[in-house]
Design a protein around this nucleic acid. Structure first.
Lengths: 136, 136
DNA sequence: TTGCGTGCAAAGGTTTTGCATGGCA
DNA sequence: TGCCATGCAAAACCTTTGCACGCAA
């Protein structure tokens, strides 16, 4: 195994800041690029893609794909949590709900042992309807 | 309102037949094109797209978008309602795996009762690593 | 005959990649 | 100094669209 180093560059920080400032909202690559341009900052599109891919892998950012032939959306989550921190997204209001649930951990080991698939539930987004929207 | 007529062409039938023959599996545009080529049939890619879009609109076929910059998958539904299966996507090879699992249904009712969130797990994509990629 | 369907090629978008340069540690 | 990150442009992909021709009804 090799330790994977991540440099703290200006561009990485800018992307992260913009995402954090838009917590709870969906942000596209074009949004980021446009914002940087307006701020007079230069950042290549490929850099945004590369940083975003890394951030998703790290768990700091979630990626949403709503349709093909349309840009992907990203949303800031924050620091990756130790265990048990999962995310559910409400299809109705778009809100993000945290979930701490033992059964999910049980699901992970069950799927791994009985279905031979290693789930990465930190990267998984559970879709559904939140309590508020259900009552409405 | 105007009745929308749909012609029964050879190409439409070929696409439908191939999808029906692969019931329960995920099929990409490339899969269809390759199959037709092997059968010695000619069918333009745009025709496949157009027919598939129509079939999805009619509800005979379901479309899945699991990641941007990757081809969409299609699955024959026919007259039936839900397929009942869940979907897992391998982060490594991009492959799609069907999952039939009782524990997931249990998870759904648990989250609804104890966490007050109504999961839509048919729409949820579980990320992870498939068995082949894990061994490699 | 009417008008939808098909094929081909071109266009339109999004995302990835190669390579030389620049910057963090 | 080592590596990783960045920028630019080009490449790679997936999907849609325009247009002339073909075919179902």
């Amino acid at each position: 195994m090799h330790e994977h180093h991540t440099y703290k560059t200006k561009q990485r920080q800018m992307v992260l800041d913009f995402l954090a400032a838009n917590r709870g909202r969906h942000v596209t690559i074009a949004d980021i690029a446009k914002h940087m341009e307006q701020m007079g900052e230069t950042i290549g599109t490929s850099t945004i893609y590369r940083q975003l891919n890394k951030l998703v892998e790290e768990g700091q950012v979630k990626r949403y794909v709503f349709s093909d032939s349309a840009a992907a959306s990203f949303e800031y989550i924050g620091e990756k949590e130790e265990t048990g921190g999962y995310h559910m997204k409400c299809k109705s209001c778009g809100g993000l709900v945290h979930l701490e649930c033992d059964l999910i951990e049980k699901l992970r080991s069950h799927v791994q042992e009985d279905h031979d698939f290693e789930l990465d539930l930190v990267q998984t987004v559970f879709y559904g309807t939140c309590s508020d929207c259900r009552r409405a």
